[in-house]
Nucleic acid binder design. Structure first.
Length: 422
DNA sequence: CCTAATGATTGTGG
DNA sequence: CCACAATCATTAGG
């Protein structure tokens, strides 16, 4: 819109080369926009000459003549002419009229798509950067604090902090890059804007430029720069996402839970074998005790249930161990919160058997424990469910959540499962 | 190195 | 959304 102005106010000074060849386009433009100003005498004051009623043919000749003489004019002469034109008393009025025309023609079509509703994607990017702590004021609050709190209570996972700091440093790196780039863009934008504004202001002395036009120009520049910024934000987002996925992958690089943690979990699992579905609160409690997250507890129980069910025989030893342990704990006046959920299978069953183990030589006792446990686990309600109430309950519950288990081995209490098929 | 154990993820169904 | 089942990916032990 601005690169090719139709007016020839400063024509003579820079249009020399073109003028010589008598460009038809130029001629046409001249004749259109300055119908009353071209005059004869290629010499001096041609532009300011008075009107004369010559024929058009003659006019054209004059113009050509004028153009031809441009080459002969000196720069000073041209400047002088320009100045003279600028000082003409009609000039402001003419300019304002021209501005109006411009406004009505060229810019009217632009008006239609002037408003843009704040690109939603840009908003999304902004939100994400903000949420990720890249665009915000400073990091160090929310997530980090929560993580540190969680780890401190458990008193463990010293390596997670390491990974975390790694993540943090990478993130801050991205952050700093983002900010410097953003600043650079911003600076360039304002610089360019002021430059353009100055340019336009200056040009407004020689050609019709309305303030509104300048405004529009500035808006256009801002839009362009903001699109660049969007790109920057997008790539930053990408970088964060990549970093994030790497970090999450690192989380997949699991560490086994501590011995104590698995102890606690197993204790709960086997003491609630009838219904190994800890409530949300129980999960939280366990998580706190083990220094892991609630979802990790959920994972653990999910894995445990499925793996236990899949091969009960493999877990019998373990089951025994923990059953015995809880029995011992219960016996030692540990009236701890067992949260009798639904079936009320708290310290139940094995207190008696534990007693038995205690009064019996160790090796033998362990063997008996296996037997007992396997009986408890593989018992079917119809067989001898009416012997003891606790046994009955337990067996029932077992059958309930396990559905039908499919232990590949013959449920032998021994550790020698002779199913080597190769 | 191979394998079992194990924590996490993914896909499916209620 | 939760549980389950299958699977992935890593760790630990031989």
């Amino acid at each position: 819109m601005l690169q090719q102005q139709p007016l020839t106010g400063n024509g003579p000074s820079n249009g020399r080369g073109l003028g010589v060849s008598g460009h038809p386009g130029m001629h046409a433009l001249n004749s259109v926009h300055q119908p009353s100003q071209h005059r004869s005498d290629g010499g001096e004051s041609g532009l300011e000459g008075t009107e004369n009623g010559h024929e058009t043919r003659r006019d054209i000749g004059d113009i050509l003549q004028q153009i031809m003489t441009i080459t002969d004019q000196s720069l000073d002469e041209a400047q002088a002419k320009k100045h003279a034109l600028n000082c003409h008393r009609m000039k402001p009025a003419l300019f304002s009229v021209l501005c109006e025309i411009k406004e009505k023609t060229g810019l009217s079509m632009r008006n239609t798509q002037e408003e843009e509703p704040q690109d939603p994607q840009l908003v999304r990017l902004d939100n994400m950067l903000l949420a990720e702590g890249v665009a915000g004021p400073e990091k160090g609050g929310g997530a980090a604090a929560a993580v540190s709190a969680a780890t401190s209570s458990g008193g463990m996972s010293p390596d997670s902090s390491l990974e975390h700091s790694d993540y943090k440093s990478k993130l801050s790196q991205i952050r700093s890059i983002y900010h410097t780039e953003l600043e650079k863009y911003e600076q360039a934008c304002t610089e360019f804007t002021t430059h353009v504004m100055n340019l336009l202001r200056e040009q407004s002395r020689t050609r019709p430029v309305t303030p509104r036009e300048i405004e529009r120009m500035v808006a256009i520049i801002h839009r362009k720069f903001s699109s660049i910024q969007t790109q920057l934000k997008q790539s930053t987002c990408e970088a964060v996402m990549i970093l994030r996925s790497r970090f999450l992958d690192a989380r997949r690089k699991r560490r086994n839970f501590s011995k104590q943690a698995t102890e606690v979990l197993n204790e709960y699992f086997y003491s609630h074998l009838s219904n190994p579905y800890p409530s949300e609160e129980a999960k939280e409690e366990l998580a706190k005790q083990c220094g892991i997250t609630v979802s990790q507890v959920s994972n653990w129980f999910g894995n445990k249930r499925i793996r236990y069910k899949k091969n009960i025989g493999k877990f019998q030893e373990e089951a025994n161990l923990y059953a015995m342990k809880t029995a011992l704990g219960a016996r030692q006046g540990d009236d701890s919160p067992h949260t009798p959920n639904s079936t009320g299978s708290g310290s139940f069953s094995l207190s008696g058997s534990a007693d038995m183990f205690l009064g019996v030589p160790s090796v033998n006792g362990e063997q008996s424990a296996y037997q007992m446990q396997s009986m408890l686990l593989s018992i079917s309600p119809s067989q001898e469910g009416d012997k003891d109430t606790f046994l009955n309950r337990h067996a029932y519950a077992n059958g309930n959540w396990q559905g039908r288990a499919s232990p590949p081995s013959g449920t032998s209490p021994r550790t020698d499962h002779s199913d080597n098929s190769d």
